[in-house]
Design a protein around this nucleic acid. Structure first.
Lengths: 104, 104
DNA sequence: ATCATTAATCGTTAAATTACGATAAGCGAT
DNA sequence: ATCGCTTATCGTAATTTAACGATTAATGAT
């Protein structure tokens, strides 16, 4: 059995985890949740990273579907797609369906 | 603010996500959960990958603390650390504390 | 029309990841 | 003591990632 039936689901979960798999991107998510929505420049001003680097991380998060970016004039405003983030938490929980939380 | 107070927590979360950020490693977790515990060779026989590659992925999961490996003679038996996996799900959920699940 | 601001993209470099075959190491059985 | 089985590690090559500065593109204001 080289390819489980639900490989697309697995690939999707892996992609989401991969996008979260860098401290800077978790920090960005944190900041977006804290301020609800942020201009790219706001994040640049908070993190000790070049603008191009922040933009790259935002791109990764956006392509994974974890954040949404809407252009507002010359600026781009980002916010977390909470549905996707919640779905990720649910998907990870669902990996261990047989476990009752009280057992752990 | 270049360094949030809870940076170690953030780094830990990122490390866990990074470990899960590859389809093969999710497949391995799946298999370990399905059979409860597995010899390395069992996983090699299921996945279309070389033994050294599987061993490498197991190492990544083990170093992240998501699986536990115990040597049994010449074999090594792996199983998921369900506490850690549950903690990961909880940590991701905790990113959005203000949200009630009914809202989404 | 020009200018300033903002963000995305390009090009580059260094480092990390992934995959493999080959080899080594550990253990049980003969 | 040796052999066979199992797994970890080594060495390597190809790909991807992460970071940066520089440039481009787009918009709003002058």
């Amino acid at each position: 059995m080289t390819t489980p039936e639900n490989q697309p689901t697995i690939d999707r979960l892996a992609a989401l985890c991969k996008a979260l798999g860098h401290p800077v991107r978790i920090n960005i998510l944190h900041q977006l949740l804290r301020e609800d929505r942020c201009i790219c420049g706001r994040i640049v001003e908070i993190l000790p990273l070049a603008q191009s680097t922040v933009s790259q991380h935002l791109k990764v998060l956006k392509e994974a579907g974890l954040i949404i970016g809407e252009v507002e004039g010359p600026k781009t405003c980002y916010c977390v797609d909470k549905v996707q983030l919640a779905a990720l938490a649910t998907a990870i929980s669902a990996l261990l369906p047989e476990i009752k939380l009280e057992q752990i």
